[in-house]
Amino acid sequence: MRNCFAASGAILAAALIVSSSALAQDTPTRRPGQVDQRPPSVYEKMANAGPGGPAPIHDLNGFWNGPLEPKFGDTPSLTPLGQSKFKLNIPDPFSAHSNDPWRTCDPLGFPRSATNETRGLAFAQMPQGIVIMTQYQKIWRMVWMDGRELPKNLGTRGGPSSRWYGYSVGHWDGDNTLVVETTGVDDKTWIDRRGYPHSVDMHVEERYTRIDRNDLELTVTIDDAKMYTKPFVAATNKFKFTPQQQEDEQLCVPSEAIDYLNTIAIPAGQDEIVGQK
C-alpha cells in the first residue's frame, strides 16, 4: 500500500513540477498546451494590486484571500515513533483504502486548517483576543492575547483535554507581526494532506506578518519532539486583503462527501488502475 503511495507521490511530484504554477501563490502563467479557460479568482486578480499603502499597526482585521493551497515547507525528519504513526496514515481521498479524515469531512484540526484549502482567512479583534476564521469549513479559533499561558499536562488525567483546534495564545512581535502559539491538538488530526502525524504535545507557531496594507505572509512552524527530530516549517502562505470583504461559503458536508465516495470515487477504481489491492 505504501508502495502505491510512493508511486502516487512520484506522480504528484512530477505533476507539481509540470504544473507548479497551478499551486503558485501568484498569478499562474499558462503552460504549453494549457487552455486559458478558467477566469482568475479574486486572489489572482489581486496579484498586481500593489501594496495599497503602509500596514496599520497591530491590525490584521478583515477578510483575506489566499491561494487554494499553501506551499509546503521542509520535509520533516521523523522520529521512530513518528515513522510508525506516519505509516498508518494513508492519504488520498480518492483511494478506497485511504483513512484521510478529510475524506469524510471530519474536522481538519489545526494546523491542517492552515495547510488545506486556504482560499479565505479572516481576523476579528475581540476584547481579550483575536479570532482567526478560516473560510473552508467556517472554522473559528480563539487566540487569547491577554497574557495567559498555554495549558500544561494536556491529555492527562486531571489535565485539560486535547481539542480539534487546540489552545492558542498570541502576541505582537513589533508593529506588524502576530505570533500565535498553539498546543493541545487532538492527535487524530493530520498536519497536512500528506498524512504527517503529531502528538497532543505538538507546539505550533504561526507568524502572520502584514508587510503592507494588502499583503500578509504566514509561516507555520512545528515543534513536536515525540514525532520529529527537530522543528520544521510545515507551510508558508501569502494572502491578499480582500477589496469587497466578502467570503465564499465552502463547506465539506459529511453526507455529501460519503455520497461522492460511493457514487464516484470508489466506482472510478483508482486503486484498481494503479494496482493497489
Binding site: 509540470v18 494532506r193 488502475i273
Partner: peptide
C-alpha cells in the same frame, strides 16, 4: 479531444 499536459489539482485524475 486535444491532449494537453495534465494539471495538478488537489484531487487526482488517475482513474479516468
Amino acid at each position: 479531444l486535444l491532449l494537453s499536459i495534465p494539471l495538478f489539482a488537489h484531487h487526482g485524475n488517475t482513474a479516468y
